Lab assay of single mutants.
Amino acid sequence: GATAVSEWTEYKTADGKTLYYNNRTLESTWEKPQELK
Protein backbone atom coordinates (compact mmCIF):
# COMPACT_ATOMS: atom_id res chain seq x y z
CA GLY A 1 0.00 0.00 0.00
CA ALA A 2 0.97 3.62 -0.37
CA THR A 3 2.65 5.29 2.56
CA ALA A 4 0.83 8.28 3.98
CA VAL A 5 2.93 11.29 3.16
CA SER A 6 2.87 14.07 5.72
CA GLU A 7 0.73 17.00 4.66
CA TRP A 8 2.87 19.30 6.75
CA THR A 9 5.55 21.59 5.35
CA GLU A 10 8.11 23.07 7.72
CA TYR A 11 9.18 26.68 7.31
CA LYS A 12 11.95 28.49 9.16
CA THR A 13 11.11 32.12 9.83
CA ALA A 14 13.63 34.96 9.87
CA ASP A 15 13.75 34.95 13.68
CA GLY A 16 14.58 31.26 13.79
CA LYS A 17 11.16 29.89 14.70
CA THR A 18 9.61 26.98 12.87
CA LEU A 19 6.19 27.29 11.29
CA TYR A 20 4.27 24.21 10.19
CA TYR A 21 1.85 24.52 7.29
CA ASN A 22 -0.71 21.90 6.30
CA ASN A 23 -1.14 21.63 2.55
CA ARG A 24 -4.49 19.85 2.81
CA THR A 25 -6.32 21.92 5.43
CA LEU A 26 -4.39 25.15 4.71
CA GLU A 27 -3.83 25.39 8.44
CA SER A 28 -0.62 26.78 9.91
CA THR A 29 0.66 26.25 13.42
CA TRP A 30 3.68 26.99 15.60
CA GLU A 31 3.17 23.73 17.50
CA LYS A 32 4.67 20.58 16.06
CA PRO A 33 1.76 18.59 14.58
CA GLN A 34 0.90 15.13 15.97
CA GLU A 35 1.77 13.52 12.63
CA LEU A 36 5.37 14.71 12.92
CA LYS A 37 5.97 13.46 16.46
Results as ranks from 00 to 15, higher is better:
Thr13Gln: 09
Ala4Leu: 13
Ser6Ile: 08
Thr13His: 05
Lys32His: 04
Thr29Lys: 05
Leu36Lys: 05
Thr29Ser: 10
Glu10Arg: 03
Leu26Phe: 15
Thr9Met: 11
Asp15Gly: 09
Pro33Trp: 01
Val5Met: 13
Thr18Trp: 04
Tyr21Leu: 09
Asn22Ala: 00
Thr3Trp: 11
Lys17Phe: 05
Lys17Trp: 05
Tyr20His: 01
Glu27Ile: 07
Trp8Ser: 00
Glu31Phe: 07
Tyr20Phe: 05
Thr29Phe: 08
Lys32Trp: 03
Val5Gly: 13
Gln34Thr: 12
Gly1Val: 12
Lys32Pro: 07
Thr3Ser: 13
Asn23Gln: 08
Thr3Gln: 11
Thr9Pro: 00
Glu35Ala: 13
Lys32Tyr: 05
Glu35Phe: 06
Val5Gln: 13
Trp30Val: 08
Thr25Ser: 02
Tyr21Gln: 06
Glu7Thr: 05
Thr18Pro: 03
Glu7His: 06
Ala4Phe: 12
Leu36Pro: 05
Thr25Trp: 02
Lys32Cys: 08
Thr3Met: 12
Lys37Met: 15
Val5Asn: 14
Gln34Pro: 14
Ala4Met: 13
Thr9Asp: 04
Gly1Asp: 12
Ala2Val: 12
Ala4Val: 13
Thr25Ile: 01
Thr13Asn: 08
Glu7Phe: 06
Lys17Arg: 15
Lys37Pro: 08
Glu31Gly: 03
Glu35Ile: 08
Trp8Val: 01
Asn23Glu: 10
Glu35Leu: 08
Glu7Asp: 11
Val5Ile: 14
Ala2Lys: 07
Glu10Met: 10
Leu26Gly: 15
Thr25Phe: 03
Glu35Gly: 09
Trp30Asn: 08
Thr13Pro: 00
Lys17Asn: 07
Thr3Tyr: 07
Asn22Thr: 00
Tyr11Ala: 03
Ala14Asp: 10
Tyr21Pro: 01
Thr29Leu: 05
Glu31Leu: 08
Tyr21Trp: 10
Asp15Met: 04
Trp8Asn: 00
Lys37Thr: 13
Asn23Met: 07
Ser28Lys: 10
Tyr21Val: 15
Ala14Glu: 11
Tyr11Trp: 09
Trp8Gln: 01
Asp15Ala: 06
Gly1Tyr: 12
Thr13Arg: 04
Thr13Phe: 13
Ala2Thr: 13
Pro33Leu: 02
Trp30Glu: 12
Lys17Asp: 06
Glu27Trp: 02
Tyr20Arg: 00
Lys17Met: 07
Glu27Asp: 04
Ser6His: 10
Thr18Leu: 08
Lys37Leu: 15
Lys37Trp: 14
Arg24Phe: 15
Glu27Arg: 03
Gly1Ala: 14
Ser6Leu: 08
Lys12Asn: 09
Glu35Asn: 09
Lys37Gly: 14
Glu31Thr: 10
Gly16Met: 01
Lys17Thr: 09
Glu10Trp: 13
Glu7Pro: 05
Ser28Glu: 10
Leu26Ser: 13
Lys12Phe: 09
Ser28His: 11
Arg24Val: 15
Ser6Gly: 11
Leu36Gln: 04
Trp30Ser: 10
Lys32Gly: 02
Glu27Ser: 04
Gly1Ile: 14
Gln34Val: 12
Trp8Asp: 00
Thr18Ile: 14
Arg24Tyr: 15
Gln34Asp: 15
Lys32Ala: 05
Gln34Lys: 09
Gly16Ile: 00
Thr25Gly: 02
Thr3Lys: 04
Glu10Pro: 04
Leu36Val: 06
Gly1Lys: 05
Tyr11Asn: 04
Leu36His: 08
Ser6Thr: 10
Gln34Ser: 12
Lys12Ile: 14
Leu26Ile: 01
Thr9Ala: 08
Glu31Ser: 06
Pro33Asp: 02
Thr3Asn: 12
Glu7Tyr: 07
Arg24Gly: 10
Asn23Val: 09
Thr9Asn: 05
Tyr11Met: 11
Pro33Thr: 02
Ser6Arg: 08
Glu10Val: 11
Thr3Leu: 12
Asn22Ser: 02
Thr9Ser: 10
Thr9Phe: 08
Gly16Phe: 00
Ser6Ala: 12
Trp30Met: 10
Thr18Gly: 01
Ser28Leu: 15
Lys32Glu: 07
Ser6Met: 09
Ser28Trp: 15
Asp15Trp: 04
Ala4Asn: 13
Thr3His: 11
Val5Pro: 14
Gly16Pro: 00
Lys12Gly: 03
Ala14Asn: 08
Glu35Lys: 04
Thr18Glu: 03
Leu26Val: 02
Ser28Thr: 15
Ser6Glu: 09
Asn23His: 13
Lys12Gln: 11
Asp15Thr: 08
Thr25Tyr: 03
Thr9Val: 14
Glu27Gly: 03
Gly1Glu: 14
Tyr11Thr: 09
Thr13Met: 14
Val5Ala: 13
Gly16Tyr: 01
Trp8His: 00
Lys12Cys: 06
Trp30Tyr: 15
Lys12Ala: 08
Arg24Glu: 14
Thr3Pro: 13
Asn22Asp: 03
Gly1Pro: 13
Glu7Val: 08
Glu27Pro: 00
Ala2His: 13
Glu31His: 08
Thr9His: 08
Thr13Ser: 09
Trp8Thr: 01
Lys17Leu: 09
Ala2Asp: 11
Glu7Gly: 05
Lys12Glu: 08
Lys12Arg: 11
Thr3Phe: 11
Tyr21Cys: 09
Glu27Gln: 09
Lys37Tyr: 14
Asn22Phe: 00
Asn22Tyr: 02
Tyr21Thr: 09
Gly1His: 13
Leu26His: 15
Leu19Asp: 03
Glu35Thr: 07
Leu19Met: 13
Tyr11Leu: 14
Glu27Met: 08
Ala4His: 14
Tyr11Asp: 02
Tyr20Thr: 00
Gln34Phe: 11
Trp30Gln: 06
Ala4Asp: 12
Glu10Gln: 08
Glu27Leu: 05
Tyr21Phe: 15
Leu36Thr: 06
Glu31Ile: 12
Asn22Gln: 00
Ser28Asn: 05
Tyr11Gln: 07
Thr18His: 04
Gly1Ser: 12
Tyr11Ser: 05
Leu36Ser: 06
Asn22Arg: 00
Leu19Ile: 14
Asp15Ile: 03
Thr29Val: 10
Lys32Asp: 04
Ala4Gln: 14
Trp8Glu: 01
Thr29Ala: 05
Val5Tyr: 14
Thr25Asn: 03
Leu36Gly: 06
Tyr20Trp: 15
Trp30Thr: 10
Gly1Met: 12
Thr13Lys: 03
Glu31Asp: 10
Leu36Asp: 07
Gly16Thr: 00
Leu19Thr: 04
Asn23Gly: 04
Thr18Met: 05
Gln34Leu: 12
Lys32Leu: 09
Arg24Ile: 15
Trp30Arg: 05
Tyr20Glu: 01
Leu36Ala: 04
Trp30Leu: 09
Lys17Ala: 06
Glu31Ala: 06
Tyr21Arg: 08
Glu35Val: 10
Glu10Asn: 02
Thr18Ala: 03
Thr3Arg: 01
Lys12His: 12
Tyr20Val: 00
Ala2Arg: 03
Trp30Pro: 06
Tyr11His: 09
Lys17Gly: 06
Lys37Asn: 13
Gln34Ala: 14
Ala14Tyr: 05
Arg24Pro: 04
Leu19Phe: 15
Glu27Phe: 04
Glu35Met: 06
Val5Trp: 14
Thr29Pro: 00
Ser28Phe: 15
Ala14Trp: 08
Thr3Gly: 13
Tyr21His: 08
Asp15Pro: 01
Tyr20Ile: 00
Glu27Thr: 06
Trp8Arg: 00
Tyr11Pro: 00
Thr9Arg: 07
Leu26Tyr: 13
Gln34His: 11
Ala4Arg: 03
Arg24Ser: 15
Lys32Met: 13
Glu7Gln: 06
Gly16Asp: 03
Glu7Trp: 07
Asp15Phe: 04
Ser6Val: 08
Gly16Gln: 02
Leu36Ile: 09
Leu26Thr: 10
Ala14Lys: 11
Thr18Val: 12
Glu35Tyr: 07
Thr25Arg: 00
Glu10Ile: 15
Gly16His: 03
Asn23Tyr: 08
Glu31Lys: 06
Ala14Thr: 10
Tyr21Met: 07
Leu26Glu: 14
Thr3Val: 13
